[in-house]
């Protein structure tokens, strides 16, 4: 069954500076929405509001036509991959995975992952930053939540892990909706089927990749790349 995350209105300010002035969009199961925006335009702020860890000045967010409020995380509807690693560092990978997935089937999916298999006896804190971020991504991805918010999922990752993440998003989008924000725009462009830019607090639709230049996210020198 498909689900709908309907962001009808989000308005938020930090002090006198209005970061998000009129944000509205819909994410459905199967959507991979790439949100672009320069530093400080409110991309991470928007994700935190949708996850419920930041209270917006005004917010009207519906999940399957029910007002979501600030409990999307507690209700296990929205999962959030923070740009920093939030995994407990002193736990081994082998002990960490069952904390999220007590049943065998889900555990196996993670333990059989080639990248996880070779690090399962290591403590999370002993892994490279890229490995930690990949593990965090996998844990979030395999939760039963309808929507996954990915804040900088490609940052600090080697090319191989980036490709694996893209493959897994492609594989899971039949049962989840994804909202991604990352400055590695080429990776986001590859995986996103809906693209948007936040500029001056407003979300604008990106019809073609070239719009990223016209909307002020990329400089003119990228024009030759598209």
């Amino acid at each position: 069954m498909g689900h709908t995350l309907d962001v009808r209105s989000v308005i938020h300010s930090f002090g006198k500076r209005q970061v998000l002035s009129s944000i509205a969009f819909t994410c459905r199961t199967g959507d991979v929405i790439g949100i672009f925006g320069r530093n400080g335009t409110g991309k991470s702020t928007l994700l935190k509001i949708l996850f419920g860890t930041l209270q917006a000045n005004e917010s009207e967010v519906y999940i399957d036509n029910e007002l979501a409020g600030a409990k999307t995380a507690i209700n296990k509807q929205v999962a959030y991959h923070h740009q920093e690693v939030f995994l407990p560092k002193h736990t081994t990978v082998k002990n960490l995975i069952p904390l999220y997935f007590p049943n065998g089937e889900k555990q196996n999916k993670l333990f059989y992952d080639q990248q996880i298999n070779k690090i399962e006896n290591q403590k999370v804190g002993a892994l490279s930053l890229g490995q930690q971020r990949y593990l965090q991504f996998l844990l979030i991805l395999h939760l039963d939540h309808y929507f996954v918010l990915l804040d900088e999922p490609f940052s600090m990752l080697e090319p191989l892990l980036k490709e694996l993440i893209k493959e897994k998003i492609e594989l899971h989008k039949s049962c989840k909706g994804f909202i991604i924000t990352d400055h590695y725009f080429a990776d986001v462009l590859q995986v996103a089927n809906i693209k948007k830019v936040i500029t001056d607090g407003v979300m604008k639709v990106v019809d073609k990749d070239m719009d990223l230049i016209d909307l002020g996210y990329l400089s003119d020198k990228f024009r030759s790349r598209f």
Partner: peptide, 15 residues
């Protein structure tokens, strides 16, 4: 020291 870890618990539904 570990404030960021609250996201780990929150993703699993523990506020």
């Amino acid at each position: 020291h570990q404030n960021i870890e609250y996201y780990f618990y929150l993703n699993a539904g523990l506020s």
